[in-house]
Write a protein that binds this DNA or RNA. Structure first.
Lengths: 124, 124
DNA sequence: ATTCGTGCAAAGACTTTGCATAAAT
DNA sequence: ATTTATGCAAAGTCTTTGCACGAAT
């Protein structure tokens, strides 16, 4: 079904080399070093396949287009920090005590997202 | 600077009557009952002005276009619950203990967002 | 040879903007 | 009369899709 092509291998290696989640355009820019003719549509299609194959996890921050990261990094429960200064997104391990307690009675919570904003160690 | 027109009054009343945050298209649909000729561009422009005037707060959930709610409701710190079944967004008062503790050393946290997903009381 | 992926361009969802007209002051 | 908002359509961003061509089996 899903073939492992030159393009897909290049995209995989872009994610493996990345230091944080990447958006499609960033992936394209980096993948073009390996496969000059690659197009944006291929990046979108390949990312979608890799998400279906659980090879990538989407990282969706409020008000921003989706980024993606390799699934290994996403296996343990974690959240994200976005630096208001440099815009970089950092992954944070761990979680707060019991976020589900926020929900009113009768609401069943199956998952949650937490995003922190501020200034990262590099920008401080 | 900002004039209070028929359209803007209609949009304000749509938000005041709403039971949760609304997106621009929903606002348009409801405002057209009052002001039949109103256009989507006016809704977008008016929402932007009302956000600048602190009359509305944006409600941005991961991977979804922005919704908005009257600022009074947004004055106390709160978060949101999105029902996976009906898609409705609920506001939750309160917050978890200390979300900032998730951030690594050297990171300064200025704000955070928490979104819960699951099944609401109506759908359960 | 057949199947599936790619590149390009067209189209789709959401949002912003330019411009002539209309409304508010 | 002057200023500012409106409506429409065009354009902009991000993403998906149709289709002919190319690559992999």
């Amino acid at each position: 079904m899903t073939r492992d092509t030159r393009q897909r291998r290049a995209i995989r290696s872009v994610f493996d080399d990345a230091d944080g989640p990447l958006g499609p355009q960033e992936v394209l820019d980096r993948a073009q070093r390996d496969v000059p003719g690659i197009g944006l549509a291929t990046v979108y299609r390949t990312i979608k396949l890799m998400v279906e194959d659980q090879e990538l996890n989407p990282v969706e921050l409020p008000g921003e287009p989706a980024r993606y990261e390799p699934a290994e990094r996403g296996h343990s429960h974690h959240h994200f920090f976005k630096c208001d200064a440099c815009g970089r997104v950092y992954e944070m391990q761990g979680c707060v005590s019991n976020p589900s307690s926020l929900a009113p009675d009768g609401f069943r919570v199956s998952r949650h997202e937490i995003v922190l904003y501020g200034t990262c160690a590099n920008c401080a």
